[in-house]
C-alpha cells in the first residue's frame, strides 16, 4: 500500500461509516442525502485506489487527481458536523466552510504525505522547485474546483428552492 492512499482512503472510509450509520439511524441527515454521500464516498475511495495503482515516484499527476476529491470529502464532513452539532447554515456559509475545509484538508494531506516523501528522498534544487510548482498548482486546482462546486451547490439549492440548508437536511431548533 502506497503512502498516498492512506490519508484519503482512511478519511473517506471513516466518513463512509458515518454516512452508513446515518442512513440506518436517519437521525440528523435525510435518507436521500446519506445515500448520495455513500455513493460519492465509495467513488472517492475507489479513485484513491486507482491513482495509487498508477502512481510512480516521479509522477505528480496523482496529486491533481486526489486533491479535488477532498472537496467532496470536505462537503460531507461539513454536512455531518452541522448535523451532529446542531448548526444552522445558509448555502453561502455552507459553501464557504466547504471551501476552507477543502483547503485545510489538502494542507494536512500535503503535510502528511509530501513531508514524508520529501524528507525520505534527496531532491535536487530543480526537482524541488518543480515539485513546489506542482504543489501550488494542486492548491489552485482545489480552490478552482471548490469555487465551481460553490456555484453548483448554489444552483442546486436555488433550483430545489431550499434556502436554509439545515432546515431541509437536518432537524434543528430555533436559536
Amino acid at each position: 500500500m502506497k503512502e498516498n492512499l492512506v490519508v484519503p482512503a482512511t478519511f473517506s472510509t471513516l466518513l463512509l461509516t458515518l454516512a452508513i450509520f446515518e442512513t440506518t439511524q436517519n437521525k440528523y441527515l435525510k435518507e436521500w442525502v446519506c445515500i448520495i454521500l455513500c455513493i460519492g464516498l465509495t467513488i472517492n475511495i475507489l479513485s484513491s485506489f486507482i491513482t495509487t495503482i498508477h502512481y510512480t515516484p516521479d509522477d505528480w499527476i496523482d496529486f491533481y487527481l486526489v486533491t479535488p476529491s477532498f472537496i467532496f470529502v470536505s462537503f460531507v464532513s461539513i454536512l455531518l458536523i452541522i448535523g451532529y452539532f446542531n448548526i444552522r447554515l445558509d448555502h453561502v456559509m455552507l459553501a464557504v466552510f466547504t471551501l476552507f475545509m477543502s483547503l485545510s484538508t489538502v494542507s494536512a494531506y500535503a503535510g502528511l504525505f509530501l513531508f514524508t516523501r520529501v524528507l525520505t528522498k534527496t531532491l535536487t534544487d530543480e526537482e524541488s522547485k518543480l515539485a513546489n510548482y506542482y504543489l501550488d498548482a494542486s492548491f489552485a486546482v482545489v480552490l478552482l474546483a471548490a469555487i465551481i462546486s460553490i456555484f453548483i451547490i448554489d444552483i442546486i439549492i436555488r433550483k430545489k428552492k431550499i434556502k436554509l440548508i439545515t432546515s431541509k437536511y437536518i432537524v434543528t431548533e430555533e436559536k
Binding site: I81, F85, N86, I87, R88, L89, D90, M93, V96, F97, L99, F100, M101, S102, L103, S104, V106, S107, Y133, D136, A137, F139, A140, V142, L143, T172, K175
Partner: peptide, 29 residues
C-alpha cells in the same frame, strides 16, 4: 444562522485560518 457552541466556532475559525495559508501560497505561485 447558528454556528453552535464555542467549540464549533473555534473549529470553523481553525479551518478557515489554516485554509487562508493555502490562498497565500497560491498568491505566491
Amino acid at each position: 444562522i447558528d454556528l453552535g457552541s464555542t467549540a464549533t466556532i473555534l473549529f470553523f475559525t481553525f479551518i478557515i485560518a489554516w485554509g487562508f495559508g493555502n490562498i497565500w501560497e497560491i498568491t505566491e505561485w
